[in-house]
Amino acid sequence: MIRIKDFCYWYPGQDQPALDGIDLEIPEGQFCGVVGPNGAGKSTLCYALSGFAPHFFHGTWEGELQVGKRDVPRSTLGELAGEIGLVFQNSFNQISGARFTVREEIAFGLENLGLKRKEIERRVEETLALIDLEALAERSPFALSGGQQQRVAIASILAMQPKLLVLDEPTSQLDPRGTQEVFKILDKLAGRGGTTVVLVEHKLEWLAAFADRVITFSQGRIVLDGSAKKILADEKLLKLGVGQTQFTQAAAAVQKKKFIPRSRPLPVTLKQAQKFFE
């Protein structure tokens, strides 16, 4: 699905590449988490996957980056829109502003794709149901809470039926209720399968709950890559400035005191931790 070979990217006027020789393959339908300290290149990866680097930010690049059959850096944003969806932090800025209700907001991208009205209506209804937005369909997208707005942003992208959904810290500006709302949706998507998802997220506990795989960035490179359970339990995350869930840290500390055998793998979620300690 995603094939990246030796991909480098430099923002305009920068000597240091923001992405430095990325090799990555993500099979179709995989839910892939991305972690790393601030400034490690996580957002740039999102921009590269969706074509904004280089098409929006300019700058220079080399290597290969393919999503499906699409050669991303050699395609235009117009071609990529709808095939690769990007959702980012600020929910307010993702509301188009040109539509007056949630229903019409979700339709906006489909209108730009030039779909027939019947098809637009069908997809909008389907998406409203999937993202639990039916009750809000006639509300103004500006009159919503952050979590609801972010769900509208996700719905607006999903309605376009992208092959790949890229989310760059979608919950970092939300309160716990909003965070939970958004993660519930992501959990649903992960469970449903079919959509390939790349999610950048600092909240490791949540990531552990539904990512199949986690890759770790540091200084523009991928430094760790593996199953979510293995990577999030890796002690190296502490040194990298990514941190670990307190479940993992507590388990490691207890293991050091020899209450629990070393052979038992460290937990990353509450459920795993419960099993670990019992």
Binding site: A81, G82, F88, S96, F108, E111, G114, R117, I120, S156
Partner: peptide, 22 residues
Amino acid sequence: ERAMALEARAFSRPGRKTSLLA
């Protein structure tokens, strides 16, 4: 950011646009 969000919604895609509104 808003410009990016619009691009992601195919705003600058060439070709005819349709509308949900009749």
